[in-house]
Design a protein around this nucleic acid. Structure first.
Lengths: 141, 141
DNA sequence: ATAACAGATGAGAAGGTTTATCATTTATCC
DNA sequence: GGATAAATGATAAACCTTCTCATCTGTTAT
């Protein structure tokens, strides 16, 4: 599951290479459109569809991570190690959160459901520093 | 936060009443469109916008719960007690899962982030009974 | 009761995100 | 190099959600 573009029998095209590079460059968890904007600075003629297609493909092959978080848009992460996230309910940004991964709750969950449990994800909700400090100010929002 | 329609200074219109009734009738976690379909059987002239507007409003006022889960669509729940969910990666259905709520991890998370932590949600991923048993069959999917 | 007012609705348009289509381009394999 | 398969870019389409606004409904004050 966790592999490289070549091991997934995907051609390492220029587009894929740069999508991967740009995604790896940031610590944020960009949406497809944000990745598109980053990549377009280096490949101005790339299509939005190509970005979507490849993010989806690379996520399916375990090369990158597609975040299963709330909010309207899908987000992607070059770091595929299991870790948890926190999302700002005001501006929507998503950050990593330091918390020991609790693999054991998968087993606990398994005992209480008819589903075949594969994984879990914890998402915290809160307000980020910027939005918290902007709350009082009349002009900001 | 957790209150009735009247306490939220919302008029208890026929539409709101029936939306609440229909949402309370099911144990699933329907999408706005699924609620629309259920309600329309009793109020054929209701608009989809009314359903969206009122689900959103009632969620804001803590009358119902808007699920912060992955997937493309928002889902709603008449049960507002904090509990966790499991989502089928094959068909998308969402069920409750029995697992003690871990309020203490909010505090642990708080120590490791600059966010103001408000809440958290755990979402398990897996395959539901139906999809698991349908996996082998050639015709099903 | 009735008039004035505010809130809610229904219909449709519009917006935003994602996926599908397809002719063209690019890479790979003999 | 030529045949073949895969990937791209452009565009359209699909999908979900929100917005707009004229109309309707309920409330309040007279």
């Amino acid at each position: 599951m966790n592999q490289t573009v070549e091991q997934a029998h995907m051609r390492l095209t220029t587009q894929r290479q740069i999508i991967l590079e740009e995604l790896g460059r940031v610590k944020s968890h960009p949406t497809a459109n944000e990745v598109y904007d980053m990549v377009r600075r280096r490949l101005p003629r790339i299509g939005l569809g190509t970005v979507y297609r490849n993010l989806e493909l690379m996520a399916e092959n375990g090369i990158i991570l597609k975040l299963e978080v709330g909010g309207t848009q899908k987000r992607f992460d070059a770091c595929i190690d299991l870790h948890y996230h926190i999302r700002c309910i005001s501006c929507g940004r998503v950050d990593d959160i330091e918390l020991p991964v609790q693999q054991e709750i998968n087993e606990i969950a398994s005992r209480n459901t008819s589903y075949e449990v594969l994984s879990h994800h914890i998402e915290f909700l809160g307000t980020c520093e910027q939005c918290s400090s902007a709350e009082g100010r009349p002009t900001a929002n």
